[in-house]
């Protein structure tokens, strides 16, 4: 493995997924997934649509239930107990394709809501924290506007700040740039790169292969609900092994 890719990665396990299976009714969406994520890793999950990549990361914070296997997040085994789930969710940040900001609250209120109600942070402290992270994603001046008044790129950066306000130990990104104009993709990716440089453990479902090359220490390729191939980015892009991976890469890098 390249040295740069190993930077900041520790031996501590952040997420471990063992033999996980998921069905929608009788449709087998995820099949025998085994994945160990170490603290500080930046993993990019790629694959054709319908391959189960989003479902996989949504299982990690229990937005989707899995029917078989075991998921351990931060040392806690995911069970159906609601308190257990809420605790794991408060440690795992998530950024969605369609931002999912709360349109009836201002940007600042979007960011302070969860710290105040889940972490019981005093309001003033939560607001300082929110302003800190809004400054970090470079939109502190929009704090008192509503999400509807912001551009897509700005909304997605707010969504990242909102997750960071819970000071999560792991961040999940579910196609964070897929709903954005080309000019706005960069500002969101820049924020994610910055986050990666600070050592955040990240799992990103994305089609941004440039981002994968620059930031990821591991690229996972999925098809038909299975992990088909995983490797460090250089090897993955230059020397794919599986036929399906070769086909996929030739399709998306073809022009």
């Amino acid at each position: 493995m390249a040295e740069a890719a190993q930077l900041n990665v520790s031996d501590e396990v952040a997420v471990s997924i063992e033999n996980m299976n998921k069905w929608y009714g009788t449709f087998h969406v995820l099949r025998d997934i085994d994945l160990t994520v170490y603290r500080g890793e930046r993993i990019v999950i790629a694959g054709p649509s319908g391959s189960g990549k989003s479902t996989l990361i949504r299982c990690i914070n229990a937005l989707e239930e899995h029917q078989k296997g075991r998921i351990t997040v931060d040392g806690t085994v995911l069970s159906s107990d609601l308190k257990n789930i809420d605790r794991i969710r408060s440690e795992v940040g998530m950024v969605f394709q369609h931002f999912n900001l709360f349109p009836h609250l201002t940007i600042l209120e979007n960011c302070t809501l969860a710290p105040i109600w889940v972490r019981k942070t005093p309001k003033k402290e939560a607001e300082e924290l929110a302003m800190h992270f809004l400054t970090k994603v470079k939109i502190p001046d929009q704090a008192n506007k509503y999400p509807g008044q912001l551009s897509g790129g700005q909304q997605q950066r707010v969504a990242i700040a909102r997750s960071l306000c819970m000071q999560p130990r792991i961040m999940l990104f579910d196609e964070p740039t897929s709903a954005l104009d080309p000019e706005m993709i960069k500002e969101v990716l820049d924020t994610m790169v910055q986050l990666a440089e600070e050592g955040m453990t990240m799992l990103c479902v994305t089609h941004e292969m440039g981002f994968a090359r620059q930031v990821a220490n591991r690229v996972i390729f999925m098809d038909a609900g299975q992990i088909v191939e995983q490797n460090e980015p250089e090897e993955f892009f230059l020397n794919p092994q599986h036929e399906r991976t070769k086909l996929f890469l030739s399709q998306i890098l073809g022009h």
């Binding site: 969710r89 969605f96 969860a114 109600w117 889940v118 997750s163 819970m166």
Partner: peptide, 18 residues
């Protein structure tokens, strides 16, 4: 309401009542 609103609330660790 789009489903994303429920999911965003869930992903932040809010309980049902909140």
């Amino acid at each position: 309401l789009p489903n994303g609103q429920y999911e965003a609330g869930d992903s932040l660790g809010l309980d049902y009542a909140q």
